[in-house]
Design a protein around this nucleic acid. Sequence first.
RNA 1: GGGUUCGUAGCUCAGUUGGUUAGAGCGCCACGUUGACAUCGUGGAGGUCAGAGGUUCAAUUCCUCUCGGACCCACCA
Length: 819
Amino acid sequence: MSLPKAYTPKEYEDEIYGKWEKSGYFNPDNLDLPDDVPIFTISMPPPNATGQLHVGHTLGIALQDIMARYHRMRGDRTLWLPGVDHAAIATQNVVEKLLKKEGTSRHKIGREKFLRRVQEYVSQSKSTIENQTRKMGASCDWSRENYTMSPELSHAVHMQFKKMYDDGLIYRGERIVNWCPRCHSTLADDEVEHVEQKTKLYWIKYGPFILATTRPETKLGDTAVAVHPSDKRYKNMVGKKYQILGVLGKFEITVIADNAVDKNFGSGAVKVTPSHSFVDAEMAKKNNIPGKQIIDEDGLMMENCGKYAGMKTLEAREAIVKDMTIMGLIDHIDENYQHNLSICYRCQTPIEPLPSWQWFVAVDKEFKLKNKDLIKKFGKERATLKEISKWAVESGTIDIVPERFKKIYYQWMENLHDWCISRQIWFGHRVPVWYRGKKNDDEIYVGLEAPKRDGWIQDEDTLDTWFSSALWTWSTLLNKKDYQKYGRLEEWVEESPDLKNFHPTSVMETMHDIIFFWVARMIMMTLHAINQIPFKTVYLHGMVCDRHGKKMSKSKPETCIEPIAVSGKYGTDALRLSLIIGNTPGNPLRLSEQKIVSFRNFSNKLWNIGRFIEFNSEKNNFKEENEFETKTLADKWIMSKFNSLIAEATGDIDNYHFSHAGEKLYDFAWHALADWYIEIAKLQNDQNTHNLAHHVYVNLLKLLHPFTPFVTEKIYESFGAGKMLLIENWPIADDKKINSQAEQDFIIVQELIANIRLWKKDNRIGQNEIIKLQIAGADKIINSELSMINHLAKAEIKIISILAKSDFEVRNLKVSMVK
RNA sequence: GGGUUCGUAGCUCAGUUGGUUAGAGCGCCACGUUGACAUCGUGGAGGUCAGAGGUUCAAUUCCUCUCGGACCCACCA
């Protein structure tokens, strides 16, 4: 089979992927490996079930696929485990939008029907993202695919909830929570984003005080005024109660002293609304001040707000300011006050802090470790989630690449508060808790299934989507068969061979923006659940930006790279290379179509080197190692360069320097093999040279395969290899072939040729015009390479010992040229 | 307020423990199509390595500051 003139990826990629998948080699069980080979595991960060694959996914897939293919070729027992995330809020939002278009809503159709609708939607879009993942060349083991909402994983989620509850690490409590009135749910602290905003700062007359606030409407919920303990202005007032005139008449506040107050801001006195502010709630709690809730879960003013009841908070603010102005309660207003507004990371709606009953994970409460190795390394039998998670990284048990994210991780861990895990949305893992009687009753049952007796009602809430994702590395490896029979996690773990074989996973590769949402939570939860770290190394990639360095957005199609479209146009290999080369961990990458085009050109170059090799190799007689000798300087040079390349590329991949490895391979293929050795092969033009070229090229294909899997596999196939490149052996560098003398000598020849070409150009001599050349010195090298120089520089060479005119130097050579 | 990171050729970026003449890709300019490839080849132009100071025999590289971008955490009403 011979290769057509140009590489047309679109024609081959699906077919190649089909062959890989059909071979079963993505599954390490089918590779018949010796028992003692190293294990390499990557858990794929599950994309959202509703999502379309974007170029950020492609980068992740490319990086993970490089590692997976490399380790597979090294002969490691390699498992790359794929899956999909149910993405609770995100998915529910999408389906709610669909319902809205149809003129209905989740409340109209009810919980059961809504969830069925979500399920239908997910099963459809799930296969979309799976197929897009295939399109990107992911060599993951689809036979082990998981879904965070599968019955098995749900069972694991419930089990872990119960385990944490039994250990006292999960509790229910009334707290101020971040509430998104649009999502109608709580949010975790890190699901809240802050945006700078200009707003009005109202200076209001407040009994004996004048104080500044951005939210006058919360005055209806005030129960205190706080001042700094050392503030002399208010010293005598602390502890006293005052009657304050408000828009609904007089109300009482207590003056409290708290260090959280800044003496220098405003008047140094701050009104305290414990039910609608985190800071205020904390101050109130310390001083035993009650709260008064005035805003409900829809973001509306509550019944206790008199004529403002039912208004949205912003409406109420306007109305109240208007009334206060009439009453003479406004001192003055600063128009352009800059502050940070808290918004929902999903829908950008301003969040409303509210008091609410929720489930929390206690991060500062000790639990008992069971794993003896872990206890030994950690040094204690008891740990809090915070302590042990911090230790895992500090001790080097888990490594983070790039290093600087360790600091970010520590900082986050140190400031961590209890994690609110209950959500008021419908799609997700239902909290496995049942109540008898009213919800707030003392009688609570936490278990894997509903209690048998009557009268129990399940908690309405679902779990934060990251709760299930936090279990991902190990819940996906649990034994799926008869999972329901397991009542205890230890038992289930014990009977799960995959978990024993493949966990802890080797590398977690993901984008740095979810280090807290996901990476940190996996570390915490896995250390508690199974007393293991979830992974040994975390590799964090940065955001893929457009060519202006801005976040890509579908609303800007001119700079937004759509991976599926681009893959069809230039090939997946080109797209992957453009994401890998020039990229460093943790840093943003600017991607443009132009860059992808240049790597499409490289795919084609590689292809055409293949065509040349194919024409000239021993026809239909492919052997793993064609026989050849390393005879000429060029032979020695290319073998030396190539064996260095093997060593360097291998080292780079081992050290997560994927860009370096890719660049070196690109450079070797184009500027060593194609530009020089192939050209020389045309001159030497004997079977030995062609066999040597064949050898170098075939092994280069192996090195390139993790980076550009499709084109390399296709060429390899057409070369008539019986085996897929996918499972070929990774080349090993032969130090004996590394020959620095040959490399130095060859550089002299290269420079000589380049200088002759330049001289011809400077003297307006046609490139194909033959010139006469006299060279003095270094006879040994030159003599043996005469024919090469003659052809590549179009010259007739004489070696002499006297210098003529038009001189220049190449190292220690003296050269003169005449037309 | 605390912290991180970047500033190298027109553009995107390398530069591996400080050491000759600072590199690549793309773009640009000139020339070149005899069967691997025009998705190509050959050659070229282009940088006071953001600025200032310091350490050193030697600084793009280490330290300090300034200017200019990006980001994270915390959050002041």
